[in-house]
Structures are given as structure tokens and as C-alpha cells.
Write a protein that binds this DNA or RNA. Structure first.
Lengths: 324, 324
DNA sequence: CTGAAAGCGCTAACAA
DNA sequence: TTGTTAGCGCTTTCAG
């Protein structure tokens, strides 16, 4: 580059990297010239030598981006200023496609890979266990000896149910998704732990339609309907709230409802807006990003599952006031 | 690598790349050994020489991913088999952050950049016009001499309104977003072109709440309410449908409704599911991807705005049958 | 304090 | 048909 601008490439390199010893004057001059010329060191050449690409790959099967985008945002946020960029690869449960993507990333010498997904209890259709670079799992299942980040659904659920109780609700039921989901169990058990004996759990689908149906069952049945409902996700919650309104039951007047996910598009559009559990996916991404990077730099990281706390986002579907 | 496996590095290189002349036997043997060793050519070293990184950057300010994700999927789909990976950079209207990301990408020698966004009539907070690599714009505004891909909202809107008319609707109104959006005008004009004199356009927000409010105005007013409604987006449409149901007006019995965007989460959850306009963002991404790549390979591409056709997705909010 | 030279992993001339 | 050599743009000994 600006070796032409007075010094040898070696000096230039040292000046720009703040290494080596030299007159401040020389260093400054080089930087000056570099800036004027808009010089950018070629990361490939640099990487060839340093064995680091300052690049990581994010693999996901969450095509819709519901979970991956916040995670991605967190990763990116944590790593931009360290100069690392991230490859996003959406592999929709297609093993072949996944392999193609992983190979492409590996060829490009990514410093690490973060595997993510749409379901905590499912694996991506690729075996990353013998990848030549560090791998961390975020919001997807990983091998036993891996480092995995997930949200603490139990804690989140507990807070949700306790909030409902704190609003004075006496008969709190749980309307949730399919029993085949691990997160359904975790959330249900946390719910059960709080309400005890009188736990009532209704399993169904992750849809608004199921929310409607569940309300129909509860209110058309002989029993006294509940006054508090903890829903497995925001879509169900929205269905529940809509169904309630349609039968003249007021929320939060007669019944308090809490959702799960804090998916803006549904939580904020519900009337009234949903009080719901946020999984802090962005923070999760941040941790995951920092962790692969640490691993890439040779640090040792204890394998295991790390559960990051969820946070209750209070809106208006429960009455009650702002969070403590 | 497997130079140790019998031949010189040059021969190995030629064998693996199917270049040069040599015995099929040698070539096969090299490939064999390479496969056994799980050898992967170092893309950085290769790129250093070829001046190509097989990497492109996708820049977007659409944090929520509503528009960018499908675009991204299209780009990725078009480019994986050409071996190119894509860096996703979410810059939330923050010029500084944008610059950091762009610089990082440039350092990494991306072969090109695709700028995308959440609004067709706004620019990203970065000047890409003098980037040292080709840039194409997808679903965001670009400089005059750039190549830009957008969806053909006019055509999409026309089809939507014609569909409504085809369902026998006589008085079709248009409930849409803020006048400050260019797409609002494009869609409104297309609507006006079809219905002519009797066009009635209601500007508001992109929300369900506005859909409710608009219905209230139309039905509580003195005039005879419409029998067909073309909405500026799916959220408004959902608000409209919900409001209609609440006042006992049936959809599609009494009124037909069409949305815009085909945002699954809202379009499919509406009761009844929305007939709506899909912008084919994935196809748009595919074109954009192929185009940057062509540019990167030195092909000349005529600058200008390319409008890709939208497609009407028929569900149940209009009655009528499957599309022709 | 600074420059010359070697070398990262690969491909492309040029020889053999 | 195959091997040798040079060099991509940078960092890093090792001399000067």
C-alpha cells in the first residue's frame, strides 16, 4: 500500500497495527497516509497468516426467523466491534442443504459455528460434533458435551403464574401446545409447581384456533370457568383473549391472561395487549457469540446447558401494575 | 495437503479443480486421497489469488425481518450451489453501525453487496455508491444509476381489486397506511385506476387498530357500507375482518376483503384466512443475488428499476374459487 | 527504529 | 503428464 508513501511494508504494517517500536511521528504519518488513501488491509491475506477469519457461521432451521432473528441480532451486536461478521445459513431441515452450507462455511475458515433452531428439543440435520472449529448451540439441542444456551422457561413460567396469582387470580389454568414439545412440559411443570393440586392443563396446538377452542370447552362446560389463564405461547393467548371478548368476558376485568414469547406482532396487536414472557433471545445470542469467540481464541469453556433468565413483559392483559 | 499422497501440490490442485491435463488415474487417486483426508481447500488462500471471496453481504435496516428474511432466503437459495455464502448485517437506521458493518464486509473482500430494507422509498443510512464492489438494491431505494429490484405493487394491487370485482363486488373501498409511504400511493393509484370515479381511499396506519377504526367509520356513517375492501396490508385487513365479524357483518358473505403482504402469521390466522397479495420477495432475492454475482463476474447489467410481479394468494376472505 | 526476506495455502506460468 | 517456481497481501522474525 502506502509503502509508496515513505516506508516499507513492514513498517506500515506495524504502524497500522500498533505493534513494534517506532517514532510516534512515523506511526502517525503512516496512519495519516493510509486514511487518505482509504487503505483497507485485506482480511484474507491477514487471515491466511493468522489462521483467523473473523467470521462465524449461524446455522438455523427456523426459516421464519421467529427465534433466529433476535438471536442473530444479539450475536451480531456482541461481535461487530470485535470485527467479526456472521454468515447466516437457513437450512430448512434439509440434511443435504445443511451439509452444503456447513462445507461452504468451513471452506471459508469460519472461526466457529453457532447452531440455532426453532425448537429446543430437536437437533439440526447435521452432525457438527466433529467440525474442525468450535460449535455452540443456541436454542436448539446439542450433544451432551457441548455448550448450549437456552432460555429458562421454568423460571419464566413461574414468574408468569405467580404474576397471575399476584393479580388475585384463584383458579388459574394452563392452555398450551402439543405434548410432544419439551418446552411444553417444562412450562407445564413450572405451572404445576406453583398452583399445586388444582393444576389444569390443556394440551393442543400452537395456534389461535386452539385458543378459541379451549375457551369454548372451558366456558361451555359445567364447571366454573377460570379467572386466570397462562398460555403456552402468544398465539394461543391471542386466540383466548379474542374468544373471551366474543363471549362478553372481559380481559383483564373478569379474567387475566399471560402469553409466552413476546412476539410483538401478536402480543402488541392483541386487545388488550398481552402481558407475556420474553425469552431474551437477544441476550442469548450475545452470550452464544461471545462464547464461540472465546472458544475460537483457545479459551476453555465448561460444557453444559446454560439457562438464561426470561423476563415478564407487563402489558394490559392481566390488570395489575408495572413490574416490581 | 495430500501432496504427501504421491504428487506435487500443483498436480493436486489441478486434479481437484479438474483443470490441466493428466491421467484419469492420477486425478482419481488424488481426489480419492483428498476425500479420505477430508481435505478442504482454504478459501482464503484461493481468494487471495483469484480476488474473489465467494461471499456477499446483505445489509438491511429491517430488524424485524419481515421483508428481509424472504429476500435472504432467495439470495441464499440462488447462490449456495455457486459456493457463495452471505453475511447478514442488521443495521437499525444507525449510520455509524452501518459503516462499521460495511467496512467489515469490505475488509473481508465481499464480492458484492445487496442493500435491502423495510421500505421501498427510503435509503439505508450509508452511501454505497462508491463502494469498491458491485451493489444492488432490493426492496429499498437506491441511487439513480443503480440496479434496483422491487415488487410490482401496481400490478399486485390491480389484480387484487379486479379479483374483488370478479367476486361481484360493486362498491370497493381502499383502506391503507400513511400517505407518507410511496407504496401507499402506488397501491392507491392502481386501485383508483380499476374502480375509477367511485374510488374511496382511507389513509391511516399500518395497524389492526386502524382497520377497526376504518370499519367503524364506514359502517357508522350515513352512507351505504361497501361490499368489497382492498386493504393496504394484512394487519389492516385483519383488523377489518375482526371488526366486521364483531358487528355481525359476514366475510366473505356480505363483504369481501383482500390484504397485502401475505404475512403468514396474520393472513393465515385471520378468520377467515385472508386472500392477499404476495410480493414474491423470495424471487426478488433470487434475482438480486444472481445479479450481484453477475456484476461481480464482470458482466454488464443495465441499471434501472426492475419490478417483479406480485401474486394473488387466494384464501377465503373473498369467497370466489381458486385462482385461474 | 526500520528494512529485507520468509512464508501462510493456493493457482498459474513455465519447464522438464 | 507432472514438477518447479513465483506470487496473491499481509505479518513476523531477523538483520542492519
Amino acid at each position: 500500500m502506502a509503502a509508496a508513501a515513505g516506508v516499507s511494508v513492514a513498517t506500515a504494517s506495524r504502524a497500522l497495527n500498533d505493534t513494534g517500536r517506532m517514532t510516534d511521528e512515523t506511526r502517525e504519518r503512516v496512519k495519516q497516509v493510509a486514511a487518505e488513501l482509504g487503505f483497507r488491509p485485506n482480511a484474507m491475506a491477514r487471515g491466511l497468516l493468522s489462521k483467523r477469519s473473523f467470521t462465524i457461521g449461524l446455522l438455523t432451521n427456523d426459516t421464519y426467523g421467529r427465534f433466529t432473528l433476535p438471536v442473530m441480532a444479539g450475536i451480531s451486536e456482541a461481535l461487530v466491534d470485535r470485527g467479526v461478521s456472521v454468515f447466516l445459513c437457513a437450512i430448512e431441515d434439509d440434511a443435504t442443504l445443511a451439509k452444503v452450507h456447513v462445507d461452504a462455511m468451513l471452506d471459508k475458515q469460519v472461526d466457529g459455528i453457532i447452531a440455532s433452531g426453532k425448537r429446543v428439543d430437536r437437533r439440526l440435520p447435521v452432525d457438527l460434533s466433529k467440525a474442525p472449529v468450535p460449535v455452540v448451540y443456541a436454542f436448539t439441542d446439542g450433544p451432551d458435551d457441548s455448550v448450549t444456551f437456552v432460555s429458562d422457561d421454568a423460571q419464566g413460567s413461574r414468574e408468569a403464574v405467580e404474576w397471575l396469582a399476584g393479580c388475585g387470580r384463584k383458579r388459574i389454568v394452563h392452555i398450551t401446545g402439543p405434548e410432544s414439545f419439551a418446552s411444553v412440559h417444562v412450562r407445564a411443570e413450572a405451572y404445576r409447581a406453583v398452583v399445586g393440586e388444582q393444576a389444569e392443563i390443556y394440551y393442543g396446538k400452537w395456534t389461535e384456533a386452539w385458543g378459541h377452542e379451549a375457551v369454548a370447552r372451558l366456558w361451555d362446560g359445567a364447571a366454573i370457568p377460570p379467572d386466570g389463564i397462562f398460555c403456552g405461547n402468544d398465539q394461543i393467548a391471542r386466540g383466548v383473549v379474542d374468544a373471551l371478548r366474543e363471549r362478553g368476558v372481559t380481559v383483564p376485568g373478569d379474567v387475566s391472561v399471560v402469553g409466552f414469547d413476546n412476539w410483538e406482532i401478536v402480543a402488541a396487536a392483541t386487545r388488550p395487549p398481552l402481558t407475556t414472557v420474553d425469552m431474551n433471545l437477544r441476550a442469548l445470542g450475545r452470550e452464544a457469540g461471545l462464547t464461540v469467540l472465546a472458544l475460537a481464541e483457545g479459551e476453555r469453556v465448561e460444557p453444559g446447558i446454560r439457562r438464561l433468565p426470561c423476563q415478564l413483559v407487563v402489558r394490559q392483559s392481566c390488570g395489575g401494575s408495572a413490574p416490581t
